Amino acid sequence: MAVFTPVSDADARELLKRYTLGELVTLRGITAGIENTNYFLTTTQGEFVLTLFEVLTFEQLPFYIELMHHLAQRGIPVPQPQTLLDGTRLTMLHDKPTAIVSRLSGGYEPAPSPAHCALAGKTLARAHLAAQDFTIQQPNLRGLAWWQATVPKVLPFLDDDQRALIEDTLNEQTAFAATDTYGALPSGPAHCDLFRDNVLFDGTFEMPRMGGFIDFYFAGCDTWLFDVAVSVNDWCIERHTGVLDPERLRAWLDAYAQVRPFTLEEHAAWPVLLQAAALRFWVSRLYDFHLPRPAQTLKPHDPRHFERILRQRRGPATPTLQDY
């Protein structure tokens, strides 16, 4: 855990008095994750995940918690936030905002097949449509405004070629965001961080079943095409080069489009949004690598991975949606 807040069995028992989730059976820390403290929590009524939020404030959290509740109520496989006796879904523990959510079954697939990609694409399209009537509005906090504020902070750590790449891309994204094409893109609540380790699968490798989407704490309102681009830049690439894999990409996009067909504006915007998705994570990884938070204890991801992906997406081989 990046920031570890110890929770004892006695703490958990006291916390459970605020819910109707039964009695504590076991409590076990989860080592994965870089933003929050997480525990697997087993009670006499089921299996849950207990999260203490180390960065997000109590006031920032309702968007994420209520979005998961909204999606779960509509049959989308996401962690269901549990409701306290007072009717809310957020509380405090050790002076940290705290939530308990249902634990989904399955595990993440580090080397997804086209079948995994198709399941993820279909489920993301269903989630986008299910969130259309969600009433809380919050922008993607790692969107264009954040890139514009953060790129100047990381420029001193880049060489001339990298500076030119990041500044040229940012300028192009800023200009594109002001166009009619961008303004016409379908948008709404989006996950914005649907990497392969944020999706769980049941079943076998040959016949996977969707377990669900997790870790909504980078979610925000954005174009749905940006959400798709973030996903395929992780799911559908050759890991060492960033080159898109045609078979997995076709499986992802076809499955998504069967649920929510892409618009003409999305076809036009696809190459630019693929670059936007790569820029977003290159900037955030540069920032985490060179300007880590004092409490951050996990080793930051290598920023060069998304630099490679961005260079690939700016090359002549970037496909259009019509190719799939």
Rank of each mutant, 00 (worst) to 15 (best):
M1G: 09
V3D: 12
P6K: 07
A12N: 06
L15C: 02
L15T: 03
K17P: 03
L21H: 11
L24V: 01
T26W: 02
L27A: 02
R28V: 10
G29T: 12
I30W: 06
T31F: 05
G33T: 06
T43W: 02
Q60P: 09
A72P: 04
A72S: 14
Q73G: 10
P79G: 00
L85D: 15
L85C: 12
L93W: 03
K96R: 15
G106Y: 03
G107I: 08
Y108W: 15
S113V: 03
A115T: 10
L119S: 00
L119F: 02
G121E: 01
A127V: 08
A130T: 07
Q137M: 05
N140L: 11
W147G: 02
L158R: 06
D161K: 11
Q162S: 09
A164V: 08
E172H: 14
T181L: 00
Y182V: 12
G183T: 01
A184V: 00
L185I: 09
P186D: 10
P186G: 06
F195I: 12
R196V: 04
D197G: 00
D202Q: 15
M207R: 13
G211S: 09
G212S: 06
F226G: 01
A229Q: 00
V232S: 05
I237S: 02
H240Y: 09
H240A: 14
T241P: 03
E247D: 11
L249H: 01
R250P: 01
A251M: 08
V259T: 12
V259W: 02
R260T: 08
H267M: 09
A278R: 01
L279V: 11
R280D: 04
W282A: 11
S284F: 01
P294A: 14
H301T: 04
R304N: 15
R308L: 12
I309S: 03
L310M: 03
Q322C: 01
Y324A: 08
